[in-house]
Simulated scan of single mutants.
Amino acid sequence: MASKKPMQYIPREERPEFLALVAELANVLPEQFPDIARQCAEQYHDAVLAGHVEVLDQMEMAYTALVYQLNGGTLQGCAADDSRSARVLARALAARPGQVPCWGQAGEFLLEVDGLRLRVVLTPDMLGNHHGCALHAVDLDRPFISAEGFRAAMLTVTSCLGETVDQAARRLVLELLQAEGGAKPIAANAWARTHPQKAPGWLADALAGVRPDGQLAMFGDAPHDPEAKVPLSNAARQRAFRLRQRELKAEQGARAVLLTRKDFNSLYIGIDAFCTARADLEFLSDDSYRDSLTRIFKGSHLWSEDFFEKLGHDRGILNGEKHRESERKRGWKAYEDSCKYTDQLSVKLAEARAEIQRLQSALQEIAAEVGGAAESPALPVTN
């Protein structure tokens, strides 16, 4: 019996059904592509809720044909940057920030699971079966799924049939909590703590109506923070900034300079090297010097409780001097050892020469006793 010929994989770009969809888009204006993509996404979402896997495949192929045609007849590089077709259509379909997206939409929203508050960011891949799902901690002072305050996960659409996006995300969080043995405190050195990001505007608005325990604040019972700052308009912030600069110049005769992260790093390296090289001058014991550094670095990413202890502490130029001194000592030691070894070889050579002379004299005496035999040739002595 003849064996079956193995199934040959055909790339999607070469399949007849896909090429037929592309051909239908030949006369469609690019401005119409976002509307067609929205229709595909709507049917895709409905198919997930209804559990129609065949429709999912059809809508995924139709959406991919849009990306293919808009990208110039290829899928290569369709998501290389924000101007390429995959990202253009994704932005056109994206849900409003703070609103739970439909299946196939990119978006971010607030989720509460058993008192745990998370910012969920969903990034689908062209209506594919796998949707990237990033889980960010909202309350850094409370336990989270991971000690980093962040967890990357994946939502598989065919495993979420009949569920909305928030329902699937909630189930995912519960499964992760069970797998991890429950929530755990966020580490002090976690990236979310050491590099805090400003909360998006929609999240700040959403949290205004949610208590820290995850319950909704209704009928005006939201806790009021008497120390909360009143939001300022952009013009008001600019006026306040200019006023602070004038006050600073009037008080100290100083000119304010805005320093970038790179500026802070360069300044710190220079001060650290100076303090290390001139540690004998005891600059860090001067209160005015410490106050100046505090005003400069406090609030920057380099500031810490042991900031001053780190400055000039056995590193930088001092380490270089120590290394060079160590190399000098090592070289001198090697020279002395070489001289000692040479002296030992000289002593051994002198002893060998003396022994050779003794042997030559003994041979001559033996030759004389034998009866005047010819003298034996002298043994060569090498220098």
Score class of each variant (00 low, 15 high):
134 A>T: 09
344 Q>T: 13
45 H>R: 07
128 G>I: 09
356 I>D: 05
82 D>T: 10
28 V>G: 05
172 L>P: 05
70 L>N: 08
121 V>Q: 12
87 R>E: 13
237 R>Q: 12
250 A>W: 06
190 A>D: 12
197 Q>W: 04
61 M>T: 14
26 A>Q: 14
377 P>L: 03
383 N>C: 11
130 H>W: 09
118 L>C: 15
319 N>W: 14
382 T>G: 08
315 R>S: 05
173 V>N: 08
211 R>K: 14
179 A>P: 03
192 A>C: 15
332 W>L: 15
83 S>K: 11
172 L>C: 07
70 L>C: 11
152 A>W: 03
346 S>V: 13
371 G>K: 07
161 L>E: 01
76 Q>C: 04
217 A>D: 13
230 V>G: 00
309 E>N: 15
95 A>I: 03
246 R>P: 00
107 G>C: 08
110 L>M: 10
243 L>V: 03
221 D>P: 01
212 P>E: 06
33 F>Q: 05
137 A>S: 15
348 K>S: 07
239 R>P: 00
249 K>C: 09
178 Q>V: 04
307 F>A: 11
132 G>R: 11
93 L>Q: 10
34 P>H: 03
141 D>S: 11
378 A>F: 02
217 A>W: 09
312 G>Y: 10
137 A>H: 10
1 M>E: 04
198 K>I: 06
284 L>C: 08
377 P>F: 00
271 I>W: 02
20 A>G: 12
363 L>K: 13
186 I>D: 06
215 Q>M: 13
279 A>F: 06
253 G>M: 08
234 N>Y: 11
209 G>C: 11
174 L>F: 00
36 I>L: 15
99 Q>N: 11
236 A>R: 08
62 A>D: 07
15 R>C: 06
335 Y>F: 09
145 I>L: 15
342 T>E: 15
275 C>S: 01
149 G>W: 03
156 T>R: 10
60 E>L: 09
238 Q>N: 01
319 N>F: 09
40 C>N: 10
354 A>K: 14
172 L>R: 10
272 D>P: 08
251 E>G: 05
100 V>S: 04
178 Q>F: 03
214 G>V: 12
41 A>Y: 01
177 L>I: 06
374 A>I: 04
177 L>E: 06
172 L>W: 06
191 W>P: 03
303 W>S: 07
144 F>W: 03
56 L>G: 01
82 D>H: 10
